[in-house]
């Protein structure tokens, strides 16, 4: 899990062009949206694409997004459970 979390941090930084953020700046348990990294709705769509492109996971119900993308850790847990 910890290995996946570190990998995800790097992927999120690259996918969302967070140039001034380093992996060690991201607390895996902090919220990604709102106060955390300050991501916006377009970033949310990018995260959906990231899951599909890098892990083959398609989110069928958009309502699940809030839970899945709460933090890097919740993303990692979802990937572990659903990776094909």
């Amino acid at each position: 899990m910890e290995e996946l979390i570190e990998k995800l941090k790097k992927e999120v930084i690259e996918q969302l062009n967070l140039e001034e953020t380093k992996p060690e700046d991201i607390n895996p348990d902090s919220p990604l949206f709102g106060e955390g990294l300050g991501l916006d709705s377009i970033d949310a769509l990018e995260l959906i694409v990231l899951l599909e492109k890098n892990y083959g996971i398609k989110i069928e119900d958009p309502k699940d997004g809030k839970k899945i993308f709460y933090s890097i850790r919740t993303m990692a847990e979802y990937i572990t459970e659903h990776k094909k």
Binding site: L16, I42, D43, L45, E46, V49, E52, K53
Partner: peptide, 9 residues
């Protein structure tokens, strides 16, 4: 086929 939302906007 992976269009990027942040490019599309």
């Amino acid at each position: 086929y992976f269009p990027s939302p942040s490019v599309f906007v």
